[in-house]
């Protein structure tokens, strides 16, 4: 029984394994701009979450694989990207602007006062 639970937990953990997307972070006087490379993620599989002072970027890879394909070489070997950032107090987490196009996520976080949990709307241009 306990072993079953341990196995189930391990499998759940394995499902949660994710790749760390490479990012650029640029700061100017008005705020911070973050770019993240998440190729293969369609717009509807992208999830952004701001909670307290934690920003989580997550995306699921969905490729159109032909039936019966066998991979012979894989550098992108996990179906998920995830990266977590800690925001500093002067950033206004409530006014995060997001754009997502061609696998590149662009976030704009303006500087302001307090932070509260909310989900970020995705605008695609």
């Amino acid at each position: 029984m306990n072993e079953d639970k341990a196995v189930a937990r391990q499998e759940a953990a394995r499902d949660e394994r994710a790749m760390m997307p490479p990012v650029d972070v640029v700061e100017d006087a008005a705020g911070i701009t973050l770019y993240a490379d998440m190729p293969g993620v369609p717009k509807d599989r992208l999830a952004l979450q701001v909670e307290a002072d934690t920003l989580t970027i997550e995306g699921e890879v969905a490729l159109a694989l032909p039936e019966g394909m066998e991979a012979s070489h894989a550098e992108v070997s996990l179906p998920r990207y995830r990266r977590v950032f800690t925001l500093s107090k002067e950033l206004d987490a409530g006014k995060v602007g997001a754009e997502f196009a061609n696998g590149v996520l662009k976030l704009r976080i303006p500087k302001a006062e307090h932070a509260q949990a909310r989900r970020v709307e995705i605008k695609v241009t």
Partner: peptide, 9 residues
Amino acid sequence: VYRALFPRD
């Protein structure tokens, strides 16, 4: 390189 992040399995 897209490194695996979570968890330390």
